[in-house]
């Protein structure tokens, strides 16, 4: 059994790598939807940021510049989403679909015109390079904890962000206002909260978080952009956010179940003997998704979001 420890740790580290982009997306959703603005554009925002991050890193040779480019495009997209849904009370779902569809077309277009390639960008400086990882050598060899010995800075940031976001949402005035705006904007307005300002802030910061998700894909896990990004991870993040009942720790829990199923899947595939070897690959691959539905049926019960989530806010005249 001992010989399995490095393999287990490697599987968990791989799962964490897989998890970080989804976690960022889910936290972006938590931020935006607690202020009452549905953001199904997480997927498209990740795609934009993943590309712009690689572009920035390509131009400058520095992954941190790429990070800034990605955050920049996140702010632009967030402002677009907020302009449509907050300023003009547009349908939030339609706006989100628009950004997703635009991400499909525009990024493929830019990929071909910037890098003159189809499908892949050239490799660039990234956070996953052995030198840029955060080394915690003393953890090596310990089961489970050993997985944390060599992670990228983005994964640590995602994990820390869960705590930060929880604190902001539930222990600060700003967080109270954000949640008030998401529950009952009219009541918040009468108490002197600037509903529009709070919504703008929440949508843009949520979209920046989603942008980090894209960056974790292209500058964390890989060192280049591939045209299949974000591979549905934004949508999984959206699902995890709902599963986690619109809270940071809930989202983390949902993603850990999902990631746990991923580890299980990799572990079972790798160590399968006898009967388990006969189970087709497709069942292993779909296991995380089935388990997520199963967990929802069994444990969680009804998912109830912020009361005014998805309802455009108009001032009463």
């Amino acid at each position: 059994m001992n010989s399995n420890i490095p393999f287990l740790n490697a599987s968990i580290a791989q799962a964490l790598d897989y998890t970080a982009p989804i976690l960022f997306a889910a936290l972006g959703g938590v931020m935006s939807e607690n202020a009452g603005v549905v953001n199904i554009a997480l997927e498209g925002m990740m795609r934009f940021a993943a590309f712009f991050g690689v572009w920035g890193s390509f131009v400058s040779g520095n992954a941190w510049v790429g990070l800034l480019w990605g955050v920049g495009i996140g702010i632009v997209l967030g402002a677009l989403h907020a302009y449509i849904t907050v300023k003009w009370a547009g349908d939030q779902i339609i706006s989100g679909v628009a950004i997703n569809v635009m991400a499909m077309g525009m990024i493929t277009y830019l990929l071909e015109s910037v890098f003159k390639t189809t499908g892949y960008s050239p490799p660039v400086a990234y956070f996953g390079a052995p030198a840029s990882k955060i080394h915690l050598a003393f953890l090596k060899g310990i089961p489970i904890l050993g997985a944390f010995a060599e992670l990228t800075i983005l994964i640590w940031f995602a994990l820390i962000l869960v705590v930060v976001l929880h604190f902001v949402l539930y222990h600060t005035v700003l967080g109270l206002r954000i949640r008030a705006v998401g529950e009952n904007p009219h009541a918040a307005e009468t108490l002197g909260v600037n509903v529009f300002k709070i919504k703008w802030f929440a949508v843009i910061s949520g979209s920046v978080l989603a942008a980090f998700g894209g960056l974790a894909l292209s500058l964390g896990t890989l060192s280049s952009f591939t045209n299949s990004m974000a591979m549905g991870k934004g949508f999984i993040g959206l699902a995890a956010m709902i599963f986690g009942k619109w809270t940071p720790f809930g989202a983390l829990g949902a993603i850990l179940i999902f990631a746990g199923a991923q580890v299980l899947q990799l572990f079972m595939q790798g160590t399968a003997t006898g009967f388990a070897k006969l189970i087709p690959l497709g069942f292993y691959l779909s296991l995380p998704y089935m388990l997520t539905i199963g967990a929802l049926i069994g444990v969680v019960g009804k998912a109830v979001g912020p009361a005014s989530d998805g309802v455009p806010y108009k001032k009463e005249s």
Binding site: L80, T85, G90, A98, V101, M102, G105, M106, T108, Y109
Partner: peptide, 12 residues
């Protein structure tokens, strides 16, 4: 897709 995306955007 770009045209499609912008169309949906303007509908929003």
């Amino acid at each position: 897709s770009i045209i499609e995306g912008f169309t949906v955007g303007f509908i929003a």
